[in-house]
Simulated assay, not measured.
Amino acid sequence: MPNEALSGRTYLVVEDEYLVASDMQTMLESAGARVFGPVSDVRQAMEVLSEPSLEIDAAVLDINLHGEMVYPAAALLARRGTPFIFVTGYDCAAMPKEFSAAPCLSKPTVEADLIAALSEISSTRDLGLAAEQM
């Protein structure tokens, strides 16, 4: 069912587990969003995020990608001013303090939780962009 906050937006999915990535892609597309990716490792995520023409509204980041932490990609997103959420099979409390404000969802990800978290960061970004334009 389309979601007003996500409809027409583009989200990058960074997830190394094929079935989880596929499920998230399906959830987002059924909410009316476009999905870029999924990409499955940190190197590939950094390459994608370094592309100047990349236009995404937000990202969904699995914290642990084949044993490598996604934090360099999260830092790049933060520098670009692009909101993101984390998903993990581990404890969200173990995140570095610099990312503690980012929403963190446990896997397996529940569709309603994913949509709600992305809706929240999307609407927060909209408020920030509107304020900049005033």
Rank of each mutant, 00 (worst) to 15 (best):
Asp41Ala: 01
Phe36Asp: 12
Asp62Leu: 08
Val14Arg: 07
Leu127Ser: 11
Thr26Lys: 14
Arg43Cys: 01
Leu61Asn: 10
Tyr90Leu: 09
Glu51Tyr: 07
Ala59Met: 12
Tyr71Asp: 11
Glu17Ser: 05
Ala21Ile: 05
Pro96Glu: 04
Glu15Pro: 02
Val110Leu: 13
Asp113Trp: 02
Ala102Lys: 09
Asp91Gln: 11
Ser119Gln: 03
Ala94Asn: 13
Leu118Glu: 06
Asp126Ala: 15
Leu19Gln: 12
Ile115Phe: 01
Gly67Lys: 06
Glu55Asn: 13
Ala45Tyr: 05
Ala130Gln: 07
Val87Asn: 10
Leu61Lys: 09
Gly32Leu: 12
Leu28His: 07
Ala131Pro: 00
Ala21Asn: 06
Ala75Phe: 09
Gln25Glu: 13
Ser30Trp: 01
Ala73Ser: 15
Ala58Met: 10
Lys107Gly: 04
Met46Glu: 08
His66Gly: 15
Asp16Glu: 11
Arg43Glu: 12
Ala21Leu: 01
Glu98Ser: 10
Asp126Met: 11
Pro103Glu: 04
Val110Ile: 15
Ile115Gly: 01
Leu61Thr: 07
Ser123Asn: 04
Val60His: 07
Glu51Thr: 15
Glu68Ser: 10
Arg34Leu: 13
Asp23Lys: 05
Ala31Asp: 09
Ala94Trp: 00
Phe36Cys: 15
Gln25Thr: 15
Ala112Ser: 15
Val60Met: 14
Ala131Asn: 07
Ile56Asn: 06
Leu77Trp: 08
Leu65Tyr: 09
Arg43Leu: 06
Asp41Ser: 08
Cys92Gln: 07
Leu105Ser: 10
Ser122Lys: 00
Glu15Cys: 05
Val42Trp: 02
Pro72Cys: 01
Met46Lys: 05
Asp62Cys: 07
Cys104Ser: 09
Ala73Cys: 14
Ser22Arg: 12
Val14His: 02
Leu49Thr: 08
Met24Pro: 01
Thr124Tyr: 05
Gln25Leu: 02
Glu15Tyr: 02
Met69Lys: 14
